[in-house]
Design a protein around this nucleic acid. Structure first.
Length: 245
RNA sequence: CACCGAGCUAU
């Protein structure tokens, strides 16, 4: 079963749907009982593919097999609605899991902060953040990143920095993605100089820029009408072995 | 310390 789960999980993320269906049928033929992880992997495959009906079908099979959806299942369903911009359904799913006594964990909370942010309700995002801390979870860099991006989406620029400081004070180190979020925020405001300072700082801190980082900086310089600087970042990107798209 | 889920990726 575990071998099948691993394969389905990897193939599913790669978008090889038919190959996964094949494995699914093969398991049935060989009378290998799928477990919760199998169904969760199949569910995520449809979530990545944006197929809500198919995902619901997997949920039904899971229940028919006498299994109970767990926190991973619910988080996947929330993600599915979030990706489809169906925020009310995502929130409903978050409430339902708690109704059936399935405890959200750090991953669920991080996702919900992002969902509330996209639903333009910073208040609720802050509320879940607090609920999370009351439940005894310590935010990690992903949680902080989600919260900080929610601030930007809602135009709360000063609080972005405030949360960033709070994060560092709590001993949590920024990673590439968080730097990308901050550089993007400066770039979109036309503050390419600030973005460039961060770009240098991240490297000084030993955080290696990824393709998104370079892209974000090119975007920032283009936004500020600095084609020469954008070109410079482009060259650095190529030197670092990335293929600009 | 390896079966599944969360944050950045242009207008």
């Amino acid at each position: 079963v575990q071998s099948y789960n691993t394969l389905i999980s990897i193939l599913g993320k790669g978008g090889h749907i038919d190959r996964c269906r094949e494995l699914d049928r093969e398991m049935q033929r060989m009378e290998i009982m799928p477990n919760l992880c199998t169904f969760n992997s199949l569910l995520m495959m449809h979530v990545h593919d944006g197929k809500i009906q198919e995902a619901m079908g997997v949920l039904q099979r899971l229940k028919d097999a006498g299994l109970e959806p767990n926190v991973v299942t619910y988080t996947g369903l929330i993600k599915m609605y979030s990706r489809a911009s169906k925020y009310n359904e995502a929130i409903e799913m978050f409430l339902e899991m708690q109704r059936v006594r399935c405890k959200p964990d750090l991953t669920t909370y991080s996702l919900m902060i992002s969902v509330f942010g996209k639903a333009r309700s910073l208040e609720d995002a802050a509320l879940v953040f607090r609920q999370m801390q009351e439940a005894g979870y310590k935010p990690n860099v992903i949680t902080w990143s989600a919260l900080i991006q929610v601030c930007e989406r809602n135009g709360k620029f000063p609080e972005m920095g405030a949360y960033f400081n709070e994060m560092q004070a709590s001993g949590c180190q920024p990673d590439v993605t968080l730097y990308n979020i901050l550089m993007g925020a400066y770039g979109r405001q036309g503050l390419s100089v600030q973005a460039a300072i961060l770009f240098r700082k991240m490297q000084a801190q030993g955080v290696t820029p990824n393709a998104v980082s370079y892209d974000t900086m090119i975007q920032a310089f283009c936004h500020s009408k600095q084609p020469a600087d954008a070109q410079g970042v482009h060259d650095q990107m190529v030197k670092a072995g990335y293929v600009p798209d």
